[in-house]
Amino acid sequence: MTHATTPGPGRSPSLRERNRARTYADIAGAALELFDGNGFDSTTVEQIATAAGVSQATFFRYFGTKEDVLFSDEAGSTATLIELVGNRSDPSPTVAALAEPLLAYAESMTGPGSPHSRRMTRLVMTTPSLEARSLRLRLRWEREVAHRLADEAGVVIPTLAHTMVGAVAVSCLTSALRHWSRDDSAEALLKLVREAFAVAAD
């Protein structure tokens, strides 16, 4: 699967890169509009391609499946989350210490760099056919957080404690996302994440 390319540091994007980024955005935007209007399951790749003004072959150069429109940044989102965990102010391997980085991650989801996060989150959380893919991403986050905690402890394989802490912390974030409705504000999501960590602490 091919995605829009990003130029290296200090280099302006070429015309080809700008065109690829524009096509990527056009396809993703068209897909989200159709998912919102018709439902994810009722939307076809052919409809997305037509709405975006591209061929189906072009669609598949950017996305392997229509699911990938919603999950295209799995690796990037995981890397961002783990970087925030690694830079947390409290280095202890506890659920409480992970509240700060997961709140920061939730905040990054609602910033100007993620204009479609709320729509995508609502679609993922309310579409039964996407549950398996969503669970796979959640398990990836849990696994990577546990490995980060293990690295910090100087061990290769995460202990049961590392696994449990990662699972509970990630669950706080995903539970908040599940309750973040379409009309809620970015501040509402952060409040939900804080409440989830408070429940975990209790």
Rank of each mutant, 00 (worst) to 15 (best):
L70R: 10
Y62A: 07
V69S: 00
R178L: 12
A49M: 08
L190I: 01
E195D: 14
S92N: 09
A4G: 12
E33C: 14
L139E: 09
F59K: 08
L15E: 15
G39W: 13
L32S: 10
A52R: 00
R178F: 10
T127R: 01
E83A: 08
S181T: 14
T110S: 09
A198N: 11
G154N: 04
R136S: 12
A49Y: 02
D184R: 04
S42Y: 13
G64W: 03
R140Y: 06
A104Q: 06
P93L: 14
M164I: 12
T80H: 15
P93R: 15
V95C: 07
R148Q: 09
F59R: 13
D151T: 05
R148D: 11
F71M: 07
F197Y: 01
V199C: 07
T110K: 11
A57N: 10
F63V: 04
R178V: 08
T80Y: 14
S171Y: 13
A96H: 03
L98D: 00
R194T: 00
Y62R: 05
E195V: 09
L32G: 08
A49G: 07
A30K: 01
L70E: 09
I82L: 00
A97I: 01
V156Q: 13
F60L: 09
D90K: 10
E187W: 15
S55R: 04
S89A: 15
A200S: 05
D202C: 01
I157C: 12
R22G: 05
A201R: 02
T6R: 15
S134T: 06
S14H: 02
V168W: 02
G37K: 15
R148N: 08
L103K: 14
A96R: 04
G39C: 03
A75P: 01
A198I: 07
R22D: 04
L84Y: 10
E83V: 11
E100D: 05
V69Q: 07
V156D: 06
E187S: 14
G53M: 01
T50D: 15
R16S: 15
F71Y: 11
